[in-house]
Amino acid sequence: MTVAAAPLLTVRDVHVRFAKPRGLVDLLLRRPASAVRAVEGANLALLPGETLGLVGESGSGKTTLGRAILGIHRVAEGDILYRGRAMGDPMPDWQQRLRREVQMVFQDPYSSLNPRMTIAQTLAEVLRFHRVVPTDGVDDEVKRLLDVVGLPQTMATRYPRAMSGGQRQRVGLARALAVRPSLLVLDEPVAALDVSIQAQILNLLADLREALGLSMLFVAHDLSVVRHVSDRVAVMYRGRLVEQGTRDEIFTAPAHPYTRMLLTAVPQLVARKRARVVQPATEMTEATAGGCPFAPRCPQAVDRCRAEAPAEVRLSPTHIAACHFAGG
């Protein structure tokens, strides 16, 4: 990889686990505490000004990884570095600085705003708390933020319940931008929105990225959405990153069977009543231990896949995939 610019964010072999709650029976039988392995050995790097799309089905660990980057979930193993410095670094003011430099936009525009605060109150609180602007400049800054995200000034005194999903999502974006972050983690920011509104938000994000030079980690379950905003794309399956590459590499030369499955699943705008075969409900089948986690659903799986976990294959300086047959 060309090491021209130092990465803004580095995720190095990160594991995140959640303890499964143990029932009374488990306690009595002294069963050991087990854990959900939400993220297993994730490696990522994000350059300044770059947007990385993180794609995968629900439950694949995208949100967990995104939240780990925000410090909401504890990292069990591995490191997350921001500007080359560990997120947990004890340097004075580092945490405070992180809270301003790394921000998050949430999936659900209905629950991500405090229902008892008006839009202006929500934004003003951020500005005051972080002293982004002098106290007498707060009102003007709120106005400016509304402008930036394309909301009319009349929305300032509204409560979230009186706004549409798209408008609330703009408020969520304004709240994240209020502290003038360098890195934005967006967790499925358009999944809850209608297509017509979704397009508005995606375009807004593209504009903001241009204007503010933001880096973004854009989480989505739908490849067609990240295609419009990402420089690079990472594909996640059951806690593992199975393929990473530039946008063109992923969309024109996908190397992992799972990526190909995601690509063909996107509905196309062409009228064609496809002849379909009913696929079984495979999503609950467990992979054999030690094998490729995708094997139960993989159309190309062979015996080797069930016995031996595939290593990462580097297909180009920017393109890697974890499949036995990714090389050729």
């Binding site: 297509v195 979704q198 397009a199 739908d222 067609s224 959405v225 295609r227 996107v266 196309q268």
Partner: peptide
């Protein structure tokens, strides 16, 4: 408008 605003793969 609906068609144009849908992200497309093709």
């Amino acid at each position: 408008g609906l068609m144009r605003s849908s992200p497309r793969m093709d």
